[in-house]
């Protein structure tokens, strides 16, 4: 049990997917202008990432490895993720319209979110067991959500401040992200 907690803390803080591993930066900058969209994106990522982590782990260990076709990993993972996102979208639309209304527009964006693909590949590279893979996926997703929501909070305030023109928008956003990354840097060496 202790090992899983260490793994979770390391994935959420020390190796934060956005700020230390640089995965998923497009939605990080794209959906962080408003708190509402940031929360929606964060929830959608948590949801999809955990499922994708499980399914790709099964694909790799029970399909690609036994057949000795690991070189097809990239192709099969992206197809699995893309179809998973489609299924989730269809399923939510039918059975949970309320949740769909919240996550709806963010779901298609997730296919090209490299955080999802990245975590699936990390799970395989680190040779995690199935349970470790689930814990890691969930923890990475929480780390993603945490950073995104923190960032959106700061960005809402930056928007009402007077920023020099050339620095506006993405530029100041990146510098802000740098400062948040610096604060997450303090977690280095904790685990």
């Amino acid at each position: 049990m202790g090992d899983y907690i260490v793994l979770a803390i390391s994935c959420i803080f020390v190796n934060n997917i956005l700020l230390a591993q640089f995965l998923g930066n497009c939605p990080f900058l794209g959906t962080s202008k408003k708190m509402e969209t940031a929360t929606g994106m964060a929830m959608a990522v948590v949801f999809v990432l955990v499922m994708a982590g499980m399914i790709t782990w099964i694909t790799d260990n029970y399909l690609l490895k036994p057949l000795n076709i690991e070189f097809l990993r990239t192709v099969s993972f992206i197809l699995v993720i893309a179809s998973l996102v489609q299924f989730v979208e269809m399923f939510l639309k039918k059975s949970m319209p309320a949740l769909y209304a919240g996550l709806g527009i963010f779901l298609p964006l997730i296919t090209t979110n490299c955080a999802v693909m990245g975590v699936c590949l990390i799970n395989i590279n680190e040779e995690y067991t199935f349970v470790q893979a689930i814990v890691a996926s969930l923890a990475y997703a929480i780390g993603f959500g945490l950073a995104l929501i923190l960032f959106a909070g700061i960005r809402e305030r930056v928007n009402v401040a007077r920023v020099p023109q050339p620095l506006q928008d993405t530029s100041i956003g990146l510098v802000t992200a740098g400062i948040i990354a610096l604060s997450f840097f303090a977690f280095k060496g904790m685990v």
Binding site: F22, L167, L174, A181
Partner: peptide, 17 residues
């Protein structure tokens, strides 16, 4: 390090603008 990457890209973007 990671934070430098963000700041550096942000400043280069500013320069381009």
């Amino acid at each position: 390090e990671a934070p430098g990457a963000f700041v550096c890209l942000g400043l280069m973007l500013c320069l381009m603008n």
